[in-house]
Design a protein around this nucleic acid. Structure first.
Lengths: 93, 93
DNA sequence: CGGGATCCCCGACGATACTG
DNA sequence: CAGTATCGTCGGGGATCCCG
């Protein structure tokens, strides 16, 4: 599985986003609510993200590993780019 | 469609990669060979990439737009990260 | 509360044949 | 050479139920 494979899947980025915005670890149910998803998908994503050591299951919930945090840092510019790109495409049509 | 949706699809990154490494525009058949894919998938990806103005159909083939080039620039660090990440995971198991 | 099991559905993929 | 049409296959998404 490639990185973009993983990140492209439903709720993968959303989970990273929610975790990076929380100052405390989030529980399974909290994540489920925050990401507005169902246990099935959330469970699959978390398993993949744990397997790849981007997220870990620490005491009292899930949080980003240091790897995960460095990845999020790289994604932010990409996210910014995609925002302006999306709005640009929208206004053109 | 979101950016990662688009980039996560088969051959999307590969096409960007091949185009960014070519110093001249590539024809449909050349891209097909370079990316080791079939016309069906290539056609779909090119259509999406053209719609979103990341790739354009210039004289004598396909090439990146300036948008496309700025996107590729942002992806490179991510790519580097994923390389070391993949090899790290591999050696750990 | 955490998370695995099941089941259905739909859309992406991929091969190939075909047309302008 | 460029691109479209067709069709079977496969895997992910999502809802829901259930057990420890």
């Amino acid at each position: 599985m490639t990185l973009l494979d993983l990140l492209g899947r439903r709720m993968a980025l959303r989970v990273l986003w929610e975790l990076s915005n929380a100052n405390a670890p989030l529980t399974f149910r909290e994540l489920e609510a925050a990401a507005e998803t169902n246990p099935s998908v959330l469970n699959k994503r978390l398993k993949e993200l744990r397997d790849t050591q981007i997220v870990e299951h620490c005491k009292e919930g899930y949080c980003l590993t240091s790897e995960g945090r460095s990845l999020v840092a790289l994604i932010l510019p990409l996210h910014a780019w995609s925002e302006s790109w999306a709005s640009k495409l929208r206004t053109e049509r």
